[in-house]
Design a protein around this nucleic acid. Structure first.
Lengths: 134, 134
DNA sequence: GGTGAAGATTACCTTGAGGTAAGTGCATGC
DNA sequence: GCATGCACTTACCTCAAGGTAATCTTCACC
């Protein structure tokens, strides 16, 4: 089992390798982190964790997202292999999105992070209040 | 032990609660994810995982970052309680940054994610190549 | 023949993250 | 007395993420 510092080393190593290789070869870890940082990707992944959903069904469950961003985020997730898209030849055609095995495997470590965030956010809040008081 | 779907539920629940409460109360989970998504925060945290470092020492280890962003990112991390800042009254004064216990505790789940990213990036690459071929 | 749903695409605009470059105050080394 | 290192700060600029709103196509329904 690796500990925190080993993970740190992996990230830094990848980052530096990518930096040397130039902008053409972005850091693979950053690649994943960018997805996690963006506003909708992980919310959609988590919504799909409950099972496959259709386009408008997703839109109803995540009403804040615009149609444009829903389409675009789903395309990105599909391109990276997190989500599969299946068109059914009904009239009008319906489209179903579901997590791929890769997408499902992300839920495990990502979930740990959610759990940490959930456990820690009052400490963060306290730290902020403390900092802002000065 | 919670499974992936429970974590999903936590995130979605927090998100919706924040959405209802209005923009004044942002989602606590998003808060953490935003830090993870930004370009420098986690790279600095991981760099500090090896031990306390001074300002220019950090700058030397992460040469791509600008002074402005280094200062700003460190301030943000300090505000959220991830890093501590200690000034030594030497001449010229030297400043040391180190992870707090909170910062150290983040390394564990974040490290899991790094490990996942590291294991999975060739699958992602393959998915992209496949997608782009069409 | 007008309306509405499904699953998008397009043009346009705003905001903010992050980069560049220069300056600051102080002290030591040459 | 000039340059250099430390730890910043400030002004300015750029670019891309994401929002809004309108439009499209095909079919079913009334």
């Amino acid at each position: 089992m690796l500990d925190g510092q080993d993970m740190a080393a992996i990230y830094i190593e990848r980052w530096n390798a990518a930096a040397e290789a130039g902008p053409a070869a972005p850091c693979p870890v950053r690649n994943v982190l960018d997805k996690i940082g963006d506003k909708w990707s992980m919310l959609l992944v988590m919504t799909l964790a409950a099972g496959p959903k259709r386009f408008n069904e997703l839109h109803r469950e995540v009403p804040d997202i615009s149609q444009k961003m829903l389409t675009q985020t789903l395309r990105d997730l599909q391109r990276d292999g997190y989500v599969g898209r299946q068109v059914f030849d009904t009239k009008p055609p319906s489209v179903e999105y579901r997590l791929t095995p890769l997408g499902q495997s992300l839920i495990v470590p990502f979930g740990q992070l959610i759990e940490w965030a959930n456990r820690s956010f009052d400490k963060i809040d306290a730290a902020r209040a403390d900092y802002d008081a000065r």
